[in-house]
Design a protein around this nucleic acid. Structure first.
Lengths: 351, 351
DNA sequence: CTGAAAGCGCTTACAG
DNA sequence: CTGAAAGCGCTTACAG
């Protein structure tokens, strides 16, 4: 029963050893252990072990004004992009004695405002985390222009953005080099002989949606390839459904396309759905490139050519950046990770 | 900068309104608000809002001996089975004012003891969570006989198991009905005309590995079908690689099989890999059934026939069970969720 | 090297 | 209905 929980405290240990609680406190903490006589420290540690004592970190946090807790806000843990990021975050936090409190801002797809859980909800989540005294925040939910961030700034809490960043300066972030990612995709398609290449962009209020679209245009320009207005369409969300719908639009408005670069893998998979429904063969009738290289896209039919993003590293670097910021180091720069192209079977020369 | 964080406390609000902190405390908490005069409560709330005050939950927790924090231990957040469970947990916790602290016990595959992160690591994780004063634990990592649970019992902390359970009694758990799941799979295959059906089991120290194997044998017996010893093999872990290796063993030791029931989808996908490498067609030469219905298995080639488990519900029910236990309700029963068979294209009549 | 004291920010009997 | 006091379990100047 919860009510019966035996709580052993520092004063139990102190009593057993015959010292003052403050001595117990000093002996327990490796940082201050040196202040205590060697044999006393040994006896304290032994007594603690025998009683099963561990310092109550809530109490310690109250006193030191640190919770050793980090809030991690994700748009949707169910999206395969985020677990590896979270894993990376956890690994480095754990090594430093921190723990993540994960808050899911809610499913993205199927929402009234697909692509972005409403700002109200996202603000509430951040407020709650702050009330819980998190020492910092890692946000994977930010918009290019995001009211939630002004709240964070007002609260003066250390923040690092990951995957999606903001354009409001002053926040550090870890992202993939979308410019380069799109160049890799477009160059590959161009090398295969494609000239009419379309793009399904992600929601433009997200940095990835906007940035990849820019990257696409730039890469096409470098190849001397035109991008007529109807060769680009914006998906309502980063979801398979939205990808299918976007592809249908493209099929109607730009019938001459021989290849599509999707802003992420889910969108590319929706592309597959639409192509199949239209009786078109991939890559025979249409080449498709994704972005992310999420798990299992090597097993879909056909295996997806995609831009691999280093999600795990995004997580570790974001956590490191945050920890440094908490330690008082200067903030305000972005870390840009270099993606790779993974060529599989969804791309081929145009017929 | 972290050092500059402005902390507004109850006494700031009290000063502003001209009341005592205890009145602020009562007014802030909906439970005790009734004890305060209506207009005073209003003024407190207004002042709190204007100052951006939210009670410090660390301090409150210290006083009330509750952290409103739940430890969630997963074997691997990167395994697509767990995100929906976590999401379910989060949803109900959040509604009740709790927050999950997610601890990843580490990758399963590729470990010395594949399938089970070493007990030492798992114990450390639980110890840390307890030191953080979590009010309860949800474990998705338990073994059929698990030393970590004796630790939990010693600490008298509320625990609910999810997905994987233990055979040591006294712990509540939420699981899928593996008996039924396997019967669905075997009956489907038998109806297609298969008589020689093999099984790739999960690690037998996990309840899912053991339970699905039992379910397989029982369903086969009910169909009057024999299960020769070499028609069953145990995978080293729930991973695609282990599934490939297990399939290779089966292909050698039981060449007459026309169908394989895998204990989960990852294993089934490894099965695809091995079949392809051996130049065998699925479902032409070999039908394959998975278990879980994880995301994207409808898009692999061929789309996978599998047993769908209600992961999201597993999470919500586990959280509810835990909350009830924390509230002092009796514990010690399992919740068994009913799975469904999803027939896709990896199963067909034998040639 | 160690003890005594104060205080982190709350909540909750206890008076009135 | 409200205030004053005590105390949750730590940590850390401050003495000695």
């Amino acid at each position: 029963m919860a009510s019966e929980r035996s709580r052993v405290t520092a004063s139990d240990v102190a009593k057993l050893v015959g010292v003052h609680v403050s001595t117990v406190s000093r002996a327990m903490n490796p940082q201050t252990r040196g202040l205590v006589a060697g044999d006393v420290a040994q006896r304290v540690l032994a007594a603690a072990a025998s009683l099963g004592y561990a310092p109550n970190s809530l109490a310690a946090g109250l006193r030191t004004r640190r919770s050793f807790t980090i809030g991690v806000v994700l748009p949707d843990i169910t999206n395969p992009v985020f677990p590896p990021i979270l894993r990376g975050i956890q690994e480095v936090l754990e090594a430093e004695g921190y723990v993540p409190i994960v808050a899911d801002a809610g499913p993205e797809a199927g929402r009234p405002e697909a692509g972005r859980p409403e700002a109200g909800r996202r603000e509430t989540v951040v407020e709650r985390l702050i009330a819980r005294q998190v020492d910092g925040l890692i946000l994977a939910t930010s918009l290019r222009h995001d009211p939630v961030l002004t709240l964070c700034r007002a609260r003066q809490i250390p923040v690092v953005l990951v995957n999606r960043v903001t354009e409001d300066s002053g926040f550090s972030g870890v992202v993939s080099d979308d410019q380069r990612g799109m160049k890799l995709a477009v160059d590959h398609l161009a090398a295969l002989g494609h000239r009419s290449i379309g793009h399904i962009s992600g929601p433009l209020e997200l940095s990835t949606g906007h940035g990849r679209l820019q990257g696409f245009r730039q890469a096409m320009a470098q190849q001397g390839l035109a991008v007529p207005a109807d060769a680009v369409t914006t998906a309502a969300a980063y979801s398979r459904d939205a990808g299918r719908e976007a592809t249908n639009r493209l099929l109607t408005q730009a019938p001459g396309l021989t290849a599509i670069v999707a802003a992420n893998d889910l969108l590319a998979l929706g592309c597959y759905d639409a192509l199949a429904a239209a009786g078109l063969d991939c890559p025979g009738d249409m080449s498709v490139v994704g972005h992310n290289d999420m798990p299992l896209v090597d097993m879909v039919d056909p295996p997806l050519t995609t831009v691999r993003i280093r999600h795990h590293e995004m997580g570790t670097e974001a956590a490191r950046l945050l920890l440094r910021q908490i330690a008082g180091a200067a903030e305000g720069f972005d870390l840009v990770l270099r993606p790779d192209l993974i060529v599989r079977a969804s791309t081929a020369p145009p017929r």
